[in-house]
Each structure stands twice: as structure tokens, then as C-alpha cells.
Design a protein around this nucleic acid. Structure first.
Length: 373
DNA sequence: TTTTTTTTTTAT
């Protein structure tokens, strides 16, 4: 399968400070506020002497306030979301928001666990097919590679009965979602099954809260995949959300890869039409079953296998609720008090507004508060 | 914007 290489990324990211848009500047301001909060949380000083409150020019404050009307989609400059964004949102909406605002920082410990998981997934994929790196220069190239993958995976699924890393995309409740299905295969009964592998550092099954998140993830995949094979995800919708330029010429390495794969295509538009036809005319069924498998990273012991029922109504209403945040129809929420234990693994626990606002910081959380008083 | 990779710290 083809992998998009990251040629050209450097020049994109090297854009100068002058390119900074208004809302990007606001993000920096927000960041400073967050730092202030963290400081005042750990060592509260005399409240009237908090610095910097009145320093900002009035015009700047008004400007900032005006930009508050931007939806999170606009504020973060997002054209679409990843399936896993909504899953993180399912775990804790505020944690997801902080992750978008302050990207990057991972503890080495956590990074190592993620890395191991990624390697196991890669090894699984390599069992099924080779990987080819295709250098890309534009987002059009990147999507072209994705399309070429779909074009080769559909016949592979129908003839060999199994593929991994199947790309999915489509509009759900007004928002465009993009993701990758871990594995699709036909069972002995001839049913199309989605299998999602979850590797775990410790040899125990996840808590219900995490299982719920995983159920939601596979449910979203089915929702989008089914829409794709039913012709509900149109090239027009794809173009509308991703703002792909059909007239931008594809890179030479992408064209070469297409040719080698037996796809004679001259433009991205051609390719999209081809994908649409292949998806809808290949007799691909909707996904019949959703399976999750949990294995131990170190020993590869199977910890458990679960089959999930697809509850369309429930998935839809959850997505509607999450989308309401992204569209700016409501503020983000933290976890309920009974799920405050999630905060223990959260990188943003020190700056989290939710914890201060909802009484979670009361005696049971900070026994010190009692002593001090 | 190339998606995803996975959750701790015990002892009661």
C-alpha cells in the first residue's frame, strides 16, 4: 500500500510570522491566560494584584472579544475532523480542546506506549502487503494517494477477503470526518466484519469508559463506510469540505505510482470519479459486524474480544452533541464528577477551567485545602 | 491537516 511521504512539508511550515492570522494571535493570547491561571492556581496571591489585567489596550480586548464569535472549527482553522478527534471528545471534551490548543507535549512514558502500539499495527499491516512511500508536495497529492489506495484495496478485499488501513471520509451531521479503518475482512459466514485492534501496556481489559470510546470509534467507521459504499459521499461534498483543487496538477511521483498501479488518470477529478464509481459499483456490502480485540503489547496475549452492536440513533445523537461544540453552538464541557478520575491521566489538569468551575477541586481532591483552612 | 498509536498510583 502507498504511504504519502512528507516531501515539501518543511516549506509549508516555514511560513513567516507575517502570515499569522488574527485568530492565530488570539490563540497565543489564550495561551498566556492559561499560564496565568496555572500560576495563580498553584500559588494564589492577593487577588487584587493580579498583573496584566488592565494593561491591554481596549481595542485589543474588543478585537479579541469579537473573535470569540468564531466557531472552534474556524478558530483552529479546521476544514474537517478526524474520527479520533470525536473519540477523544468522547473521553473528555475539554481534554480534546486543550490538546488542539497546546499540541505536542507528550510524556516520554506515554509516547513509548503509543509507539509500541503503532509498531504492532504496522507489523500487522506488513503481513498483508508491502508499503511503498510516495513523495508528495501538496494536499492534492496526499488525497490522490489515499484514493489510489482505495482503488487497490476494494478489489483486494473482494478477492482476498481482507485489507488493512482502509481510508474513510464523509459528512456526518454537518461535519466532515476523515479516518482509517484498522481492518476489514469477510467472515466464514460471508459477512463483512470491521476489526479494530487495541494494544495495551498492561494485561488487563480497559475500563467501561474506555470501551465506550472504542465502541464509538468503530461505530463511526461503519457509519462513514456504509455511506461511502451507498453513494452518499459524493465528490461534490468531498470537494466542498476539503477545498481540494481539481485543476492543480498531480506530482510526478503520484502519477508514476498511479501508472504502476494500472490507473490511467490525468487529474484529481478523474481519480475522484473513479473512486466514487468503484465504491458504489463493486458490490461492497455495508459492514455487518463490529469487532474489537484487546491484546497485551509485551506478550501479545489476547485479553478479550468484543462484538459491538451498531446503534445508529445513539451514534447520531452523540455526534450531534459533539458537532454542536465544533460549530460554536455551545461551550466545551469537562467530565462529570463521577468520571473525575480521568483527570489523573490528563496533561492539562493544572490549567483546566472545568475543574475549578465545577467543584471538583473540593476537599476530596485537595485534602490540603482542609488542613490549610 | 497525512490518522492513529494509549491511558496512571496504591491499598482498602
Amino acid at each position: 500500500m502507498a504511504e504519502a511521504g512528507d516531501e515539501g512539508t518543511a516549506s509549508v511550515e516555514a511560513s513567516g510570522f507575517s502570515d499569522l492570522s488574527d485568530s492565530e494571535l488570539v490563540e497565543f493570547l489564550d495561551l498566556e491566560e492559561a499560564k496565568e491561571s496555572a500560576v495563580s492556581l498553584s500559588k494564589p496571591g492577593p487577588s487584587s494584584e493580579l498583573p496584566g489585567k488592565d494593561d491591554k489596550p481596549v481595542s485589543l480586548q474588543n478585537w479579541k472579544r469579537g473573535l470569540d464569535v468564531l466557531s472552534p472549527m474556524e478558530r483552529f482553522h479546521l476544514k474537517y475532523l478526524y474520527v479520533t478527534d470525536l473519540c477523544t471528545q468522547n473521553w473528555c471534551e475539554l481534554q480534546m480542546v486543550y490538546g488542539k490548543e497546546l499540541p505536542g507535549s507528550l510524556t516520554p512514558e506515554k509516547a513509548a506506549v503509543l509507539d509500541t502500539g503503532a509498531s504492532i499495527h504496522l507489523a500487522k499491516e506488513l503481513e498483508l502487503h508491502d508499503l511503498v512511500t510516495v513523495p508528495i508536495a501538496t494536499k492534492e497529492d496526499a488525497w490522490a494517494v489515499k484514493f489510489l489506495n482505495i482503488l487497490s484495496m476494494i478489489p483486494a478485499l473482494q478477492s482476498e477477503g481482507r485489507v488493512r488501513e482502509f481510508p474513510v471520509f464523509g459528512e456526518v451531521e454537518g461535519i466532515f470526518l476523515v479516518g482509517v479503518i484498522d481492518e476489514l475482512h469477510y467472515t466464514s459466514k460471508g459477512e463483512l466484519e470491521l476489526a479494530e485492534l487495541k494494544t495495551r501496556r498492561r494485561p488487563v481489559l480497559p475500563l467501561p469508559a474506555q470501551k465506550k470510546k472504542d465502541y464509538f470509534q468503530v461505530s463511526l467507521y461503519k457509519y462513514i463506510f456504509d455511506a461511502m459504499v451507498q453513494g452518499k459521499v459524493t465528490p461534490a461534498s468531498l470537494i466542498h469540505h476539503t477545498k481540494l483543487c481539481l485543476d492543480k496538477p498531480l506530482g510526478p511521483s503520484v502519477l508514476r505510482h498511479a501508472r504502476q498501479g494500472g490507473v490511467s488518470v490525468k487529474s484529481l477529478g478523474d481519480l475522484m470519479e473513479l473512486v466514487f464509481l468503484s465504491l458504489t459499483l463493486s458490490d461492497l456490502p455495508a459492514i455487518d459486524t463490529l469487532k474489537l480485540e484487546y491484546i497485551h503489547q509485551e506478550t501479545a496475549t489476547i485479553l478479550g474480544t468484543e462484538t459491538v452492536a451498531f446503534e445508529e440513533k445513539e451514534v447520531k445523537s452523540k455526534v450531534q452533541h459533539y458537532v454542536a461544540y465544533w460549530m460554536g453552538h455551545r461551550d466545551p464541557q469537562g467530565v462529570d464528577v463521577e468520571e473525575a478520575w480521568k483527570c489523573r491521566t490528563c496533561d492539562y489538569v493544572d490549567i483546566c477551567e472545568w475543574r475549578r468551575g465545577s467543584g471538583v477541586l473540593s476537599s476530596s481532591w485537595e485534602p490540603k485545602a482542609k488542613k490549610v483552612k
